[in-house]
């Protein structure tokens, strides 16, 4: 079984700051971590490998320093790591990111692709499913348990608002996972030592054999015009009285606002 886990390096803070001039994330001075959901994807990958044998490859797209996230993944136990990095990839939205990652996993080869359900910085939850579409393979999002797995098929529990679905899919397949699926392992000492020396494979634009209009800013249909925090408004009015009186008052207020 060839397992590829897509991870993202994100700033380690609950409050992501935005540079108001460039509308991009402020990364300076903020320590970086592996996106927490992706740790669960890595754990799921390692557990599948323990069951079925094979290899686990960690893949990320990002600036050169994203290599640190890949070394952490190696310390946890993945077999190898690939960094997609090129100026041409800069400014990618989820579409271009998913496209670029899908080109890379094609090159690496895969049976199962695992992603965290979303990244804690962008919070879109789009890249995983979009990748599956580009690759033309089935995907199951929000996986909370893997019940059965063979080289041919996989059966999982997909988390729903209330309860869960049991979904079966042929392999190859892409899964995005939620935190409930497992408890990510800590790194091991041997893993940390291996991670320090490990060679991280780098893939750039040329290696993907694609068109420059499909990647990076040029390949991104989403163009960010403005990012701002919504203003908090506290002008509220409490209506008091019996239900009949309140309804009467409310009609008055709505008329005043020209809603009625």
């Amino acid at each position: 079984m060839k397992i590829v886990v897509c991870i993202k390096q994100v700033p380690d803070t609950a409050e992501v700051r935005i540079n108001p001039e460039t509308n991009t994330l402020v990364r300076d001075g903020v320590p970086s971590i592996i996106n927490p959901y992706d740790l669960h994807a890595l754990e799921a990958g390692l557990q599948i490998k323990e069951l079925t044998g094979g290899t686990v490859t960690a893949l990320t797209m990002g600036p050169p320093q994203a290599e640190d996230a890949l070394r952490e993944a190696i310390a946890m136990g993945v077999d190898d790591a690939v960094l997609l990095t090129d100026r041409a990839f800069a400014g990618s939205d989820t579409w271009a990111t998913a496209y670029t990652l899908s080109r890379a996993v094609k090159k690496i080869g895969f049976d199962i692709i695992l992603c965290g359900k979303q990244a804690i910085d962008g919070d879109t939850a789009q890249v995983g499913p979009e990748m599956a579409e580009f690759l033309d393979i089935p995907h199951i999002a929000y996986v909370k348990a893997i019940d059965e797995i063979s080289t041919e098929r996989i059966r999982v529990k997909r988390m729903m608002e209330e309860g869960y679905d049991i979904v079966e899919s042929p392999i190859p397949v892409l899964l995005t996972v939620v935190k409930e699926i497992n408890e990510p392992r800590l790194p091991s000492l041997k893993g940390k030592m291996r991670a320090k020396k490990a060679e991280i494979k780098k893939l750039g634009f040329d290696a993907l054999e694609t068109d420059e209009h499909l990647v990076g800013l040029k390949g991104s249909p989403t163009q960010v015009k403005d990012i701002f925090a919504p203003e908090m408004k506290k002008d509220r009015k409490v209506l008091k009285g019996s239900p009949e009186e309140i309804v009467e008052q409310l009609i008055g207020v709505l008329k005043e606002m020209k809603c009625l």
Binding site: R185, P187, S188, L189, K190
Partner: peptide
């Protein structure tokens, strides 16, 4: 055990 601490 998983972290190799017993083997130091």
């Amino acid at each position: 055990a998983q972290s190799d601490m017993f083997g130091i």
